[in-house]
Amino acid sequence: MSDILCIGSVLWDIIGRAPASLRLGSDVPGRITRLPGGVAMNIAMTLTRFGLRPALLTAVGRDAEGDELIAACLRMGLDCSHVYRSDDLPTDRYMAIEGANGLIAAIADAHSLEMAGDKILRALGDGALGSVAQPYAGLIALDGNLTEALISDIARSPLFAQADLRVAPASPGKAERLLPLLGHPSATLYVNLEEAGLIAKGRYESAAEAAEALLARGAARVLVTDGGRDAAMGTAGQGVITGRPPQVLVTRVTGAGDTFMAAHIVAEARGEPRAQALEAALRAAADYVSGDIGS
Rank of each mutant, 00 (worst) to 15 (best):
M1A: 15
L5I: 14
G8P: 04
G8C: 10
S9H: 03
V10M: 09
L11P: 02
L11Y: 02
D13C: 11
I15T: 08
I15S: 08
R17A: 08
A20R: 13
S21L: 00
V28C: 06
R31I: 07
I32F: 12
I32E: 13
V39P: 04
I43Y: 00
T46P: 05
G51P: 04
L56W: 09
T58Q: 11
A59I: 04
A59P: 12
L69S: 01
M76S: 04
G77N: 06
H82D: 14
Y84D: 02
D87P: 00
D92K: 02
R93T: 04
Y94F: 13
Y94M: 06
Y94A: 14
Y94V: 01
M95P: 02
E98C: 03
N101H: 08
G102M: 07
A108H: 06
A108T: 06
D109M: 02
S112G: 06
I120D: 06
G125K: 11
G127L: 06
G127P: 12
Q134T: 10
Q134N: 14
L142T: 03
D143M: 13
N145D: 02
T147L: 03
E148C: 06
A149M: 06
L150I: 05
L150K: 05
L150C: 07
S152Q: 10
S152C: 13
S152V: 03
D153C: 14
I154A: 00
A155I: 03
P158Q: 05
P158S: 00
P158T: 05
L159F: 05
A161N: 10
A163K: 12
A168H: 09
A170R: 01
S171R: 07
P172D: 09
A175H: 12
L178M: 09
G183T: 12
S186M: 08
A187D: 00
T188M: 09
N192Y: 11
N192A: 10
L193F: 13
I199S: 01
A200M: 08
E209N: 07
A211F: 10
L215S: 03
A216S: 11
R217N: 00
G218F: 04
R221T: 11
V222D: 04
L223T: 02
G227T: 01
G227M: 02
G228I: 00
D230M: 10
A232I: 03
A232Y: 09
T235L: 14
T235I: 15
Q238W: 01
R244M: 10
P245W: 07
P245H: 01
V248I: 05
T254E: 07
G255C: 09
D258L: 15
T259A: 15
F260P: 15
M261Q: 13
R270P: 01
P273N: 07
A277C: 07
L278W: 14
L278V: 03
E279N: 08
E279L: 14
A281D: 05
Y288W: 11
S290E: 09
I293S: 09
G294C: 05
S295T: 03
